[in-house]
């Protein structure tokens, strides 16, 4: 059963996510005795060795981390042209580097933003900027620690599909897209604030 929500329905996921292998022990970063939960904006996600060791499936539609794509542009150009490549960017990776990699961001049929932990609200600004600043029009997907209680905010920030975390029910999550019927402020899905949409002097 798929856990992907798109157009208010659960649909099959036609994209295979490519994940670089972990090589050796991961270092647990600590600060004042506490595990550091979030990566700082600009921190690298994968080492050059991991990127080099990544197995890329030879056929089918694949979702690649931005850095893996950047290391394999030449080999994969044909598949990009065939619409088989989508790009995944993590919340701590700079959007500028995604924008600089493609002359037209709308060549991509799908961009996924990976959120390692749901309280990482950078994902909302990234969705907003991809839509409003970089003019991205195709599918924008939230991937990772994606839970139903954040769906409404993700939708309002420009996301159009949501891959619910595997241990949670996408069926249950669907209703959270409708948590509020008339939001106050303008955002990506509805640019106008309520007072520009509705005549409130008589409401």
């Amino acid at each position: 059963m798929s856990n992907l929500i798109k157009n208010n329905a659960i649909v099959a996921d036609e994209w295979t996510r490519v994940i670089p292998p972990s090589l050796g022990e991961e270092v647990v970063k600590k600060q004042a005795g506490k595990v550091v939960l979030f990566k700082l904006t600009g921190e690298p996600t994968y080492s050059p060795e991991q990127i080099a060791a990544t197995q890329i499936p030879a056929t089918g539609k694949i979702l690649l981390p931005l850095t893996v794509w950047q290391a394999n542009v030449a080999q994969l150009a044909g598949r990009m042209a065939a619409g088989e490549i989508a790009i995944l960017i993590a919340t701590h990776e700079p959007l500028e580097s995604l924008a600089a990699t493609f002359s037209d961001i709308n060549e991509l049929p799908l961009i996924a933003v990976f959120v390692e932990r749901f309280p990482d609200g950078r994902i909302f600004t990234m969705g907003n900027l991809l839509r409003t600043r970089y003019g991205y029009k195709n599918e924008l997907r939230a991937v990772g620690d994606v839970l139903r209680d954040q769906l409404f905010f993700l939708k309002r920030s420009g996301f159009s599909s949501f891959l619910i975390r595997a241990d949670r029910s996408a069926e249950d999550a669907l209703s959270s897209l409708q948590d509020f019927s008339q939001p106050y402020q303008g955002a990506v899905d509805e640019a106008l604030p309520v007072w520009r949409r509705v005549n409130r002097s008589h409401a």
Partner: peptide, 14 residues
């Protein structure tokens, strides 16, 4: 108050 209530972009700040 209205603008900040459930502001989607700023729902989970640092």
């Amino acid at each position: 108050r209205q603008w900040s209530t459930f502001h989607p972009e700023f729902a989970l700040l640092p």
